[in-house]
């Protein structure tokens, strides 16, 4: 198990040192800042759209980080070593995904309340919004990992990764933004939260297997 945590730690350290964490958070704020320019500074309108906008920006920030998941390891030969580590490749992959989640998604979620403030969300709206993001974001990382692993052997495959991942993001987006929209009414949407958690759980079971298969294919 210590091997698993070592992989997770390595990915976190590299994401942090490479400035990926800072970039992703900056991306979130830039995205949110652009919204009033596009939609007008009317506070009521911004608040009505805020949950959906925050989901879109969160997904965009995550999508731009996906090519860092395995691409560097493919290029510098670490992927070869991952095949030989004393841990099944599926778990190695899971360790990296967990590292990615902790180094990128958690900071993004921490930034969401502040970003929500810029879009006129009241503190009362935040718990439901964050709950939905917490329930749905594991699925985002796991499913994005599938796209990243399929495109890993493609030079500058960032855009391809986005194209491959987006169809997988549609369900998470629908239920995530839907549940968050209920936050404005001050309601807890248990059904959609449950579906989000179910999507995350299903991705947790399926994604590492698919990603490991794609990576084995990439080192051929």
């Amino acid at each position: 198990m210590s091997v698993f945590w070592a992989i997770c730690r390595q990915h976190m350290v590299l994401a942090w040192r490479g400035g990926h964490t800072t970039l992703a958070v900056a991306f979130l704020f830039i995205g949110v800042t652009l919204m009033p320019f596009g939609l007008g500074p009317e506070l009521a309108l911004l608040q009505a759209l805020a949950p959906g906008l925050l989901w879109v920006v969160l997904i965009m920030a995550l999508l731009t980080s996906l090519d860092r998941l395995f691409q560097a390891d493919y290029e510098d030969g670490s992927l070869d070593q991952m095949m030989l580590m004393p841990l099944p490749l599926e778990l190695v992959v899971l360790g990296k995904l967990l590292g990615h989640y902790m180094a990128l998604v958690l900071p993004l979620l921490l930034a969401v309340p502040l970003a929500g403030l810029l879009l006129n969300l009241a503190p009362a709206h935040l718990p439901m919004l964050l709950l939905a993001m917490l329930a749905g974001s594991p699925a985002l990382v796991l499913l994005g990992g599938i796209g990243a692993s399929l495109a890993v052997s493609v030079r500058r495959g960032g855009l391809l990764t986005v194209l491959l991942s987006l169809p997988f993001y549609v369900p998470v987006m629908i239920f995530g933004a839907g549940a968050s929209q209920q936050a404005l009414a001050g309601e807890i949407d248990e059904t959609r939260l449950a579906i989000l958690a179910l999507l995350s759980l299903a991705s947790l079971l399926a994604a590492p297997v698919a990603i490991a298969a794609a990576l084995r294919n990439a080192v051929r």
């Binding site: 350290v13 590299l14 510098d76 030969g77 030989l84």
Partner: peptide, 14 residues
């Protein structure tokens, strides 16, 4: 098995 290839798998940031 240990495999040492052309790509050394080292991370420049460490």
């Amino acid at each position: 098995v240990h495999f040492i290839g052309h790509a050394d798998g080292l991370k420049n940031a460490l």
